[in-house]
């Protein structure tokens, strides 16, 4: 029954990449227009939205706030985008954030190791988590959603074990700078996120890794027959996601100067997946867009800010998020497109 499967597999991505490809393609247009619309709407709700002030040499304002708050989500989301590119998903990112934050906080509190070593240890924890997920998915052939569910559940327990169930607080100029410091008026966390994302982009797009990830996500069998180590690529994707979450965990812990194993990164996996989808990638894998994923994060953050500005309780964000996801998914769904196509064709003659 190959034919049945095939029609399912090949998405109707007509027009995804226009003749010129790259930046001018339609793919790029939807999310960016959405972001502009949200920002304009925010401006209409509250004219002060566009104000950017410089206080004590630091930038302040709603726009800066969106980027500031979005930094950690963006980090997680780009890792998620790569995993989704391989036709996978990583539900454990929130737990990894908690684990890396816990490792960092406990090391700072209990040892006098240099910040550099502490950060390496936190990153190492993220790497191990990613490796675990990757091995389950690539070598034990467990479905990604299930494989990463294990760490999602157990990870918070591990983080609590590390912190002994308490919120571990710490002091240290270095980490306070990461969490809430500024460089040339720009928050450090934004700079870190930007560097990591740009680096990831370079690794993916300036080497052939990005192509390999997309090939494996599009057709793992064919990729293997073309000489690509499909399993290795999958493991790598989860490791990258683990590392990205670890960086986010470091930033989040540095921000509150403590590790909260229960709440650090809670529900972040959902926001990250949302951002990838809003950025236009299909959950069926085969393509990933790092820049558009960041745009997706900004859209979600700006929506939240807009709701705050309009005076509604922040919890309304949830309903808006749900609506956005539904619209994006329905627009993307091949079946919905077919139905729309049929609808228009039927109406055409009149």
């Amino acid at each position: 029954m190959t034919t049945l499967q095939d029609t399912k597999k090949s998405p109707q991505n007509g027009g995804r990449k226009g003749p010129a490809g790259g930046l001018l393609s339609r793919q790029w247009l939807g999310p960016v227009i959405a972001l502009v619309l949200v920002i304009v709407a925010n401006g209409l709700i509250s004219p002060s939205f566009f104000n950017i002030k410089v206080v004590d040499g630091h930038l302040y304002g709603s726009l800066v706030d969106i980027i500031h708050r979005g930094a950690s989500t963006a980090l997680v989301a780009v890792g998620m985008a790569i995993v989704i590119g391989t036709r996978g998903i990583d539900l454990s990112v929130g737990s990894v954030i908690a684990i890396s934050g816990a490792v960092m906080a406990v090391l700072i509190r209990d040892t006098s190791l240099s910040p550099f070593i502490v950060i390496l240890a936190a990153l190492g924890a993220g790497l191990l988590c990613g490796l675990w997920n990757g091995i389950l998915v690539a070598y034990l052939d467990i479905q990604p959603i299930i494989a990463t569910l294990i760490l999602m559940v157990a990870g918070r327990g591990i983080a609590q074990m590390i912190t002994d169930g308490q919120i571990v607080t710490f002091h240290g100029a270095f980490f306070e700078a990461i969490g809430s410091g500024y460089l040339l008026g720009i928050p450090w966390r934004v700079i870190i996120a930007a560097i990591v994302i740009a680096g990831l982009w370079a690794i993916m797009r300036k080497t052939a890794l990005g192509l390999f990830v997309e090939a494996v996500g599009g057709n793992a069998r064919a990729s293997r027959l073309a000489g690509i180590d499909a399993r290795g690529i999958k493991v790598l994707a989860y490791v990258i996601s683990g590392l990205c979450s670890a960086v986010a965990g470091i930033i989040i812990a540095a921000d509150i100067r403590g590790a909260d194993a229960n709440n650090a990164g809670l529900w972040l996996e959902l926001d990250a997946i949302l951002a990838v989808v809003v950025g236009g990638a299909s959950l069926m894998g085969g393509r990933f867009y790092l820049a558009l994923t960041v745009v997706g994060v900004l859209i979600i953050q700006a929506l939240g800010t807009g709701i705050l500005l309009s005076g509604l309780p922040s919890q309304y964000t949830l309903i808006v998020k749900a609506a956005v996801v539904m619209v994006v998914l329905l627009v993307q769904a091949p079946r919905a497109r077919q139905m729309m196509g049929r609808f228009w064709r039927r109406r055409d003659p009149q």
């Binding site: 959902l270 309903i319 749900a322 539904m326 329905l330 919905a336």
Partner: peptide, 27 residues
């Protein structure tokens, strides 16, 4: 209905449902 008719992963549809209902609570 959406999952069956549009062939979208249940995971993401019910995720939207989760957000929606939680938001409705606060409404």
């Amino acid at each position: 209905l959406i999952i069956a008719k549009f062939d979208i992963q249940p995971f993401i549809i019910t995720l939207a449902g989760m957000f929606f209902l939680r938001g409705m609570c606060f409404l």
